[in-house]
Amino acid sequence: MKQRMIGVSSFVNHFVASRFPKSCPFILVCEFPRSGANWIRDMIGDALQLPVPRSSLLPITFSALVHSHFPQPVLKGRAVYVVRDGRDVLVSHYYKTLQTIRAGTPEQRRRAIKLHPSMGGVDGDIKLGSEIRAFYDEWKCRPLGSRVDWGEHVKGWLNAKARGVVVVRYERMLEEPNETLRSALCRLGGEDPNEIAIDFAVQRNTFESKTGRAPGQVDNNQNRRSGQSGGWREALPPDIQARFLVDFGDALDLVTAL
């Protein structure tokens, strides 16, 4: 019941941001699931000293940063859209689905197995094996946490070219966090951001400060797995890499061009 109420609240927040931007005091931070928006939202929130409410059961009616997975782009209000290489998203989604099935609530587990039945019988340590092929077939049709596939989600937001939407690429934030955060804040507010606030936000949200692990130290049982990008090269079998380019090559071109 609680999850359903949170979903309703998320829909209402997205609706208000899309239809009534002048009455919408919050900034919507949207992503396809597992693209890194929680991390980037927290950095922006720290830099702007805005709250980042989580799991709200009611619509947000104050200045804040609100997370969303909705595929419909916000055309009039302020929003941040976070994009990430879909192959890394796929790998991250795989492990997150396993975590949900093994440690989630009964309702979460039922939902995950309904969308990804291939994962229902996976036992032992969490590791990516041959079952990724069956998982990919499910993921590309209707993944856990999204109404549409990765390509449709990304193309919908990027092709809209909405004035109020600031696009942030996950990989660029990893490589140049201060510069990327500064650019996002300038586009959001139109003013020169406070450099001390930027340094504080970046340092407070490093992978090491949040996990106690150095980037590259992988823990597949955690939401923050590796703190790096490009892991798909070793994780995905060559045939899945090839299939991804066939299925989502046009969307991947949009992302890599940013």
Score class of each variant (00 low, 15 high):
Val246Trp: 04
Arg34Asp: 13
Lys210Asp: 01
Lys22Glu: 15
Ala162Trp: 09
Arg182Asn: 10
Lys76Arg: 15
Leu115His: 07
Val218Phe: 06
Val148His: 01
Lys140Phe: 00
Val154Ile: 15
Gly164Arg: 09
Cys24Gly: 00
Asn223Leu: 05
Val202Thr: 11
Leu75Gln: 10
Asp253Asn: 14
Met5Pro: 00
Val66Ala: 01
Ala197Cys: 11
Gly45Glu: 05
Asn159Ala: 13
Asp219Gly: 01
Arg54Leu: 14
Phe135Gln: 07
Asn178Cys: 05
Pro117Ile: 13
Val83His: 03
Phe20Thr: 02
Phe70His: 11
Arg142Tyr: 03
Asp192Tyr: 01
Gly190Val: 12
Gln217Val: 15
Val154Phe: 00
Asp253Gln: 12
Val82Cys: 09
Trp150His: 09
Pro59Thr: 09
Leu254Arg: 05
Gly231Glu: 11
Pro21Gly: 05
Ser10Asp: 07
Ser229Phe: 14
Gly120Cys: 06
Gly249Trp: 06
Leu128Gly: 04
Gly164Gln: 11
Leu48Ala: 10
Ile27Thr: 13
Arg19Ser: 09
Arg4Asp: 12
Gln241Val: 08
Ile44Ser: 04
Ala251Pro: 00
Leu185Lys: 14
Phe244Ser: 02
Leu57Val: 14
Arg133Phe: 00
Ser68Gly: 04
Lys76Met: 13
Pro51Cys: 03
Phe70Cys: 05
Asn178Met: 03
Asn194Leu: 06
Val202Phe: 07
Pro215Glu: 05
Ala37Cys: 04
Phe26Asn: 02
Leu90Pro: 03
His116Leu: 00
Ile27Ala: 02
Val122Arg: 04
Asp46Pro: 00
Asp88Arg: 03
Ser118Trp: 01
Glu191Met: 11
Leu48Trp: 01
Arg187Met: 13
Ser10Pro: 00
Trp232Ile: 06
Gln241Ile: 10
Glu191Tyr: 09
Ser56Trp: 03
Gln241Asn: 10
Met173Lys: 03
Ser146Ile: 10
Pro21Gln: 02
Pro106Gly: 07
Cys30Trp: 00
Leu254Pro: 09
Arg204Lys: 15
Lys210Met: 14
Ala251Val: 00
Ala103Ser: 05
Arg19Pro: 00
Gln108His: 08
